[in-house]
C-alpha cells in the first residue's frame, strides 16, 4: 500500500564478542526511527548491545531453486573438514 512505512530487517549483537544476528523486522519511516523502534521492540529485555537495521528492499537473497548448484557441490569436499585427516590418537592439541 502507498503510505506504508518501509520494512527494515533488524540485527542485534547480544553481547560484545558475538556477531549480529537477525532477530526480525519492523516498519519505520527512516533509518533513524528504525534504530529507535528496534531498541523498543527487540531489546525490551536487555537482549542487545548493538543494533543494525537494513531496509528489507536492499537485501539480495539467493534463490532456493538454485540450492543444488549453490550448495550441493560442497557436499563431497570432505577434505575441508578436520575429520578427513587421520592422525594417531595419542597426538594432542592438533
Amino acid at each position: 500500500m502507498k503510505n506504508e512505512w518501509p520494512l527494515y530487517e533488524v540485527f542485534i549483537r547480544s553481547k560484545n564478542g558475538l556477531e549480529h544476528r537477525h532477530v526480525g523486522s519492523l516498519h519505520a519511516s527512516d533509518a533513524e526511527m528504525a534504530i529507535e523502534n528496534a531498541r523498543d521492540v527487540y531489546t525490551r529485555r536487555q537482549e542487545g548491545v548493538s543494533i543494525w537495521v537494513v531496509p528489507s528492499s536492499e537485501i539480495t537473497a539467493s534463490n532456493p531453486e538454485n540450492f543444488g548448484e549453490l550448495f550441493e557441490p560442497a557436499e563431497d569436499k570432505v577434505y575441508r573438514h578436520p575429520t578427513f585427516y587421520d592422525l594417531p590418537h595419542e597426538l594432542k592439541h592438533i
Binding site: 512505512w5 519492523l26 516498519h27 519505520a28 526511527m33 529507535e36 523502534n37 523498543d40 521492540v41 525490551r44
Partner: peptide, 11 residues
C-alpha cells in the same frame, strides 16, 4: 498511531 510507536510510548 503505529505498533512501533505504541510500544515506544509505553516504554
Amino acid at each position: 498511531p503505529s505498533l512501533e510507536t505504541d510500544i515506544a510510548l509505553t516504554n
